[in-house]
Nucleic acid binder design. Structure first.
Lengths: 258, 258
DNA sequence: ACCGGACTTCCGGGAAATGGAAGGGTTTGT
DNA sequence: ACAAACCCTTCCATTTCCCGGAAGTCCGGT
């Protein structure tokens, strides 16, 4: 006998399931087929198919020649309106380019989202140390220069959450002891800059500084990433701090203007 | 007697209604309150409230201090995965910067979405002519340098759709005659570049050239925007064309590599 | 020709979405 | 000081619209 109709059982809010399909995309998986998406979200093929159809009609997703789903231009347009994404990026870019041209090193701009760092911009590239990060990518708060700055100025609740949980190790020098990290964060608050010495890769060192909004809240962080042994953190920190302050001022001016 | 419950009447797919809320955002309205969103989408306050709650929980939207809704970082992260958005942008950026530094003029990068141009990048700024466009913004295909290039290489169906419809006028020199535009598009295909002479504003002129993917399909366009009278289109076109070709090659190389 | 895999369409039952009403908070005007 | 106007949030009885198994289609491989 042909079983038809919904076979009972809670499914969850509809919009949330649609968003779950979008959430399946990431730097590691920028393009996926129907079956891959259904597998990742755990929904039946026909359900995924119908929801994906709606997302494509709207322009959130596009299908390439092979039939795979990719993120659509419409979603990029929306993303460009995010104040902490493109907005921050555009205001800070001239200053980041200055810093990159003066030092000839990698410059990174990042914000905190929950208990992770999200990289908003990364320039410098060619001659400098290769870095693991990617624009739009995420990383642990505990290891990078930008991460330490953002963690040091995060709400206590977030700090406890991060320090209380498992702290990921990347190299032999990654600090994974909660007490030692607590002391480092205190230093960051006192000094106004952070140092991550070979905590992410053994050949790189980064120095970060906080960017504040017009009310003094830390909303982002800049960092310089250099090859280990090239320069001392203490010659880099004034440059990074100066740049961070210039960006802070530009943000405040922007708020007043528009 | 207290009327309770859904009062009947077709409403439309749920996911679509959620997306309609996102669609209300745009360059002109980057932040909106609950009531504004409800008004724009035509849905009841309580419905908008519930759907917005889901979108905020997921991270698509964020609420600022005033309680207004803004586009969230999560959506920006997703947008960064769009091949025709951030992907194109990042590959092309070095070449655009070269072109901008050599000419000291505005450089624009754009793609076609339906019957409009979407600007993906715009650099040069300081000393150059102020331009109306914005990264992530849209414009008519018929007036700008990039638009003429993209229209000239669009499917016949799209061309007929645009030329058959109402052609928007921006200045006294905007070409709004379909036959004249058809001749201009033929020239663009023959010459390999487009000229928009004071068609958008009376003080600016732009020269555009096509960017092709590895199969020779025109997927984007670059343009130089200069003050009228500063330089002749024919001295600019070799620069723009060379830059466009370099970007085309970089795209093809990128496809082969990753 | 047969098989395995991926994609698309169909449609009846019932879970999940809907939106009027009520309540609380804040600002504006008299 | 009071009221009026506005905005936001929560509640819940009533259906509507979504769900997903099954069947159909279209590949490329053996």
């Amino acid at each position: 006998m042909a079983r038809r109709g919904r076979p009972a059982g809670p499914t969850g809010p509809v919009l949330t399931r649609g968003l779950a399909l979008l959430a399946a995309f990431g730097p590691a998986r920028p393009a996926m087929t129907l079956s891959q998406l259904a597998r990742h979200t755990g929904m039946p093929l026909s359900t995924a198919h119908r929801l994906l159809g709606e997302l494509v009609d709207w322009g959130a997703l596009e299908r390439d020649d092979a039939g795979s789903y990719r993120v659509g231009l419409r979603l990029w347009e929306l993303g460009a309106l995010a104040p902490r994404g493109q907005g921050l990026r555009e205001r800070a870019l001239p200053f980041l380019e200055d810093l990159s041209q003066i030092t000839r090193e990698n410059v990174q701009l990042a914000v905190r989202e929950g208990t992770e760092v999200v990289f908003v911009e990364r320039i410098g590239g060619s001659g400098a140390v290769p870095v693991l990060t990617r624009v739009g990518g995420r990383f642990a708060l505990t290891a990078t220069g930008v991460g330490l700055v953002l963690l040091a100025h995060a709400p206590t609740e977030v700090q406890e959450d991060v320090l209380g949980g498992r702290i990921e190790r990347f190299t032999a020098r990654t600090v994974t002891d909660a007490e030692q990290l607590r002391r480092m964060l205190a230093d960051v608050r006192v000094n106004g800059f952070s140092i991550s010495d070979r905590q992410v890769t053994m050949d790189a060192l980064s120095v970060g500084a906080p960017i504040q909004d017009e009310r003094g809240q830390v909303v982002a962080a800049v960092s310089l990433v250099v090859r280990h042994g090239t320069a001392s953190p203490h010659t880099l920190s004034p440059l990074v701090r100066t740049s961070a302050r210039a960006i802070s001022r530009a943000l405040a001016a922007g708020y007043r203007a528009g």
